[in-house]
Design a protein around this nucleic acid. Structure first.
Lengths: 210, 210
DNA sequence: TAGATTGTTAATCGATTAACAATC
DNA sequence: TAGATTGTTAATCGATTAACAATC
């Protein structure tokens, strides 16, 4: 178990490797070299080999990598086989879009439930996922622990809800609320999805040469 | 007009600066030093000054930065005052969530219309935005040019629709389709929003020390 | 075997941080 | 004025790329 710290740049590339290898696998490709993979992803062969070497030796000299095997190794590295479970907080438009359309299972995550306050959705099912009242959150989590909380609540309640999630033992928060969460608990991981940041970066890039 | 290339790391931080300055402004903060801003954002003062120096001189020795002024400068840099217009392709769950809940205007972008094929939505309005049949796309864009296409169509049609957008003169594509778009046109900017990549990175981080 | 391609060490490049003169 | 803080140049650090011996 080599325990050197893996840089964030590498971590961000891992899902891309996984996605490309999945595509290759579905296309029937059985083996690929670092240079071929690099060309198709816009990376250098060196970088790919360097990245993978953080986690082990997955290739074979003179051959390259077995696509399906490497895909499996990366799935493992990403924690896709750890049986992570997620719950959604906030079954508004975005929450429902995730429930109905996003394939959590393809990332190795089981979406177990959603929570909201509105009588319009509480008690219903969306995309096969039950929606409970948020008052039941702690009770639910005590019986059905979850490692990931998906935060799609309104900005205003983001922090209090996040604090409740953390107190109830959630390990990571997937934050869609456009708020910087400030938790005191150190161990909890926050992954922010800031739509506006992404759109503004695009706006910058298309504005540059005008 | 200094024209040194701005690194992608800097570009990605600009929207964060904008967001934090907006928050400060709303809280009534009038001036801030690079070190105070750095502390609140988890960056070094050096980095902030270095970043800003790519675009000009916005501070004052011994004083720091005027929050509202700097916010305005960054808005300008980001192209928020260029009058960018966006259209949404695909008025499914995600497309509708963006129409009804995402404030394009807060990023300086006007959302003008959406396009879909389903009779269930075509002809309706969502969040004040009309939904047209995608057959009308070229005709519409000829009359109402847009700089940004928001791609929330199913994976399968992502590439053909993207190609049509580009042919019709769109400058950037905000891609939510979990597909790597391959366009031949060089000038067009693609900004990918890969939910799964983000979730997998989170999965990795919470799995690490288990 | 010869050719291909790995994993890894060394070299390069770029980004972040530190230092400091300039000055409000 | 003295203190604070900028913009910028130099130093450091880390990440990417290149090179190459090992070997399938």
């Amino acid at each position: 178990m080599k325990k050197q710290k893996v840089s964030s740049a590498v971590i961000r590339r891992l899902p891309r490797y996984f996605r490309h290898l999945t595509d290759l696998h579905l296309t029937g490709v059985e083996r690929i070299s670092s240079s071929a993979l690099g060309k198709s992803m816009g990376l250098t062969a060196s970088q790919i080999r360097q990245d993978l070497s953080c986690f082990g030796e997955f290739g074979q000299q003179g051959y390259g990598y077995n696509v399906d095997n490497l895909r499996g190794e990366i799935a493992d590295i990403l924690g896709m086989n750890k049986g992570h479970t997620a719950i959604i907080l906030g079954a508004g438009n975005l929450g429902r879009a995730l429930m109905e359309n996003f394939h959590f299972d393809r990332s190795g995550v089981a979406l177990a439930a959603a929570f909201d306050v509105s009588p319009d959705v509480v008690g219903q099912e969306r995309g096969g996922v039950p929606v409970y009242h948020v008052d039941k959150l702690e009770e639910y989590l005590a019986a059905h622990p979850a490692s990931i909380g998906v935060l799609t609540v309104p900005r205003g309640v983001a922090n209090p809800i996040a604090a409740r999630l953390v107190r109830a033992g959630v390990k990571g928060i997937w934050n869609f609320t456009n708020t910087e969460l400030n938790l005191k608990e150190p161990g909890v991981i926050i992954e922010n999805v800031h739509f506006a940041d992404s759109l503004l970066a695009l706006s910058y890039m298309i504005s540059e040469d005008a």
